[in-house]
């Protein structure tokens, strides 16, 4: 099929716009990655390639701080993603396979609430909440807040996947003498797996990346990677921050790519 000048679908200028869009999106990330390899104490001058700032992240004067922050970030992300994915899977089953019911709209509103409320408002509200019940801020408060706002991110791919699975599979299973529980574990769950994995990954990234809510509920002394980075950046951008940012950036991109390919793999075909 030739795309000639008569192709009514194509407009001059739209391709350059798309390229501009991608350049704006990627240029800062590429630039930071390149400068993280700069063998110089100053961020302004380019003095050749080296991995010294990556080494600095692990062994330098701030390494202890980053190690603790990384441990906090990753353990919180793993636990929050696991719990919120479980909750989201159960909720999606009720919403997609539970027929019509009165509280359905309300439930959906509640599940998507963290997406509608501005993040700064959620942050303030959560801080006030823990304060009002006299809960000391720290690791636990961050974890609980993360579990809550990760639920909608896990829920979306899971429920989308479940919407796409014909209910005749479960009916066929029950027609062939499976109980409801067996139809769920033997048929629905295996078919759901790509949706659950991509929901888990999204929840993980969202937790790992969160700054605003964490910043409000973390309390004194407990840092995650984003809050530690923010603290450093306030004093000016340093090369070791670019190195750590590049690593975090790589983690996110790898996870999202996995999620993309998992959700693309259609095990119903």
């Amino acid at each position: 099929m030739a795309r000639g000048k008569n192709d009514i679908k194509s407009f001059p200028g739209f391709l350059p716009m798309t390229i501009l869009c991608l350049v704006i999106l990627y240029a800062p990330l590429v630039v930071v990655t390149i400068y993280s390899l700069n063998d110089s104490n100053s961020i302004t001058n380019w003095e050749g390639i080296s991995f010294r700032w990556y080494a600095d992240v692990f062994t330098g004067p701030e390494s202890e701080k980053f190690k603790i922050a990384a441990w906090n970030s990753f353990t919180i992300a793993i636990i929050a993603a696991t719990v919120s994915t479980t909750i989201a899977t159960l909720a999606a089953t009720a919403m997609v396979r539970g027929g019509r019911f009165r509280l359905r709209t309300v439930s959906f509103g509640l599940i998507s609430l963290p997406l509608m409320v501005p993040e700064i408002v959620t942050a303030v509200a959560t801080l006030i909440f823990f304060n009002s019940i006299g809960f000391t801020r720290g690791y636990l408060t961050i974890l609980m807040a993360h579990i809550a706002f990760c639920i909608p991110f896990a829920y979306m791919p899971i429920s989308a996947r479940m919407q796409g699975i014909e209910d005749s599979y479960e009916q066929a299973a029950m027609d062939l003498y499976a109980t409801k529980r067996q139809a769920f574990t033997k048929i629905l769950m295996p078919l759901m797996l790509p949706g659950i994995i991509s929901g888990y990954i999204l929840a993980f990234i969202i937790s790992l990346d969160d700054f605003i809510i964490t910043n409000f509920v973390k309390g004194a002394g407990v840092e995650t990677l984003p809050t530690a980075i923010f603290g450093s950046v306030k004093q000016g951008i340093k090369p070791n921050i670019m190195a750590i940012s590049t690593m975090l950036l790589a983690v996110s991109i790898i996870m999202v790519t996995i999620s993309y390919f998992v959700s693309k793999s259609d095990n119903t075909k």
């Binding site: 089953t93 009720a94 919403m95 997609v96 396979r97 539970g98 027929g99 019509r100 359905r104 709209t105 959906f108 998507s112 429920s159 989308a160 479940m162 919407q163 699975i165 209910d167 479960e170 009916q171 409801k180 139809a183 769920f184």
Partner: peptide, 9 residues
């Protein structure tokens, strides 16, 4: 919120 696909559960 999409529609309910079935009422199995």
């Amino acid at each position: 919120g999409g529609s309910a696909k079935s009422d199995t559960y």
